[in-house]
Design a protein around this nucleic acid. Structure first.
Lengths: 221, 221
DNA sequence: TCCTAACCTGAGACTTTCTTCATCTAACCA
DNA sequence: TGGTTAGATGAAGAAAGTCTCAGGTTAGGA
């Protein structure tokens, strides 16, 4: 998953000895810590290095610039989410659509909410760091996982799995964003979680039964 | 809609004469122009002023700082979207749920896509400018519009209109974001638009017929 | 033990942009 | 027509953080 972006943003040096690998990890961890404690605006490479217990010089040995540093932290986090989704999708192969929907949504929201603050903090950084491109890659990967899972359902899916997967992903992303950006995510979580499952289930249901859907083809305004 | 945020970010001086009002408008417009042409990173207040045909000093007469400038541009754009939604919601009162869904989605996507590039450019700026807070306000307003509309349907809605509205909004936001951030929004627009309408219609349908939905209440993983 | 490569250090040079303010011009009104 | 306020100007002050580099330290193989 860790991707080589075209813009020179990858580490300058690959950790060889154990101590340097530890440094890289500490730096990435510190990045999030600092982000959480002082916010994006006041995050400086010096602060990050200091928090990681290394010097700025060391930081710049592994990250060519501040952007690469933030990008590293973002990728690390998104990898977790992608990984979590991949896992559920593998587990749920062959199940019914409803089971898939519930499992997928629960896993997704659980992962996102587990460190909600980190998610939010990283949202804010995303735009400084080509976050869209990274998110696209993740999305693509996730899309394959979900579509692949859907294709194996014991029910009969009458639509393009990729399209269906896109819808489901979009809805999940939309709800999770709304949740994370709301004043008190925990308060709303339960209601939205259940409703999202209901929402998606109804859709998948309609995508499996043979329903005349021509009536829904509406011209744009 | 133009909101007074608690952090001092509102204009220093209210335009009194016509020429100054024109300046403010030109500045806001120039902000978007510069954003589109050189991107957030290279946007400077000097460039914006120059593009607007005024001096930096003038700019700072109406915006206390760069942040307020960007925020102004963002608010202006979001106001349009909110306004568009409000309008449809008023128009669609009393209609069927399906009609509402189609009209709402079409209007929303049309507005967003009309100046897709601006939308994307402003996304990138949002995090530097307390965009979340602004978006929340808009969301709240939109939520009222949508819920209000839903409540007037000729069908019978069996769920809390606010909750239903939240779901619909989230789905729309999710899809539009996916669209705007995709490599070629236009290519996917039609397919996603139709599918989103289908998606939401099936949901609303399920929210109006009396369906036993206890089976969807699933425990979190 | 000795040597080499990997790794770490941190003061400060350098760059860049924001924002101010003293001063000038245009508009409006009596 | 003169006075007063609104509006405009742009050179330059000030701040702030990024990133380098010359030199020191540690690990591990021979």
């Amino acid at each position: 998953m860790s991707q080589r972006s075209s813009v020179m943003l990858e580490p300058r040096k690959q950790p060889v000895q154990a101590r340097s690998a530890a440094s890289v990890d500490a730096i990435l961890e510190a990045t999030i810590q600092v982000l959480l404690s002082v916010g994006k605006e006041r995050l400086t490479t010096t602060k990050v290095a200091s928090r990681a217990g290394v010097s700025v010089g060391t930081l710049y040995q592994y990250f060519p610039n501040k952007s690469a540093l933030l990008q590293g932290a973002l990728i690390r986090h998104l990898d977790e989410v992608t990984e979590a989704i991949g896992r559920v999708c593998r587990e749920q192969r062959g199940k019914t659509l409803k089971e898939m929907a519930a499992a997928l949504i629960n896993a997704f929201l659980a992962t996102k909410m587990r460190d909600a603050k980190t998610s939010v903090a990283l949202y804010s950084v995303s735009s400084d760091v080509d976050g869209v491109k990274i998110a696209q890659q993740m999305q693509l990967h996730t899309n394959k996982s979900v579509a692949g899972m859907l294709a194996t359902t014991s029910d009969t899916l009458t639509k393009d799995p990729q399209l269906v997967a896109s819808m489901v992903q979009s809805a999940m992303a939309g709800v999770s964003r709304r949740l994370l950006e709301s004043p008190e995510p925990e308060k709303q979580l339960e209601a939205l979680r259940q409703e999202l499952i209901f929402f998606v289930c109804k859709y998948l249901e309609a995508c499996s039964a043979r329903v005349p859907d021509s009536e829904f083809v509406v011209e744009p305004s």
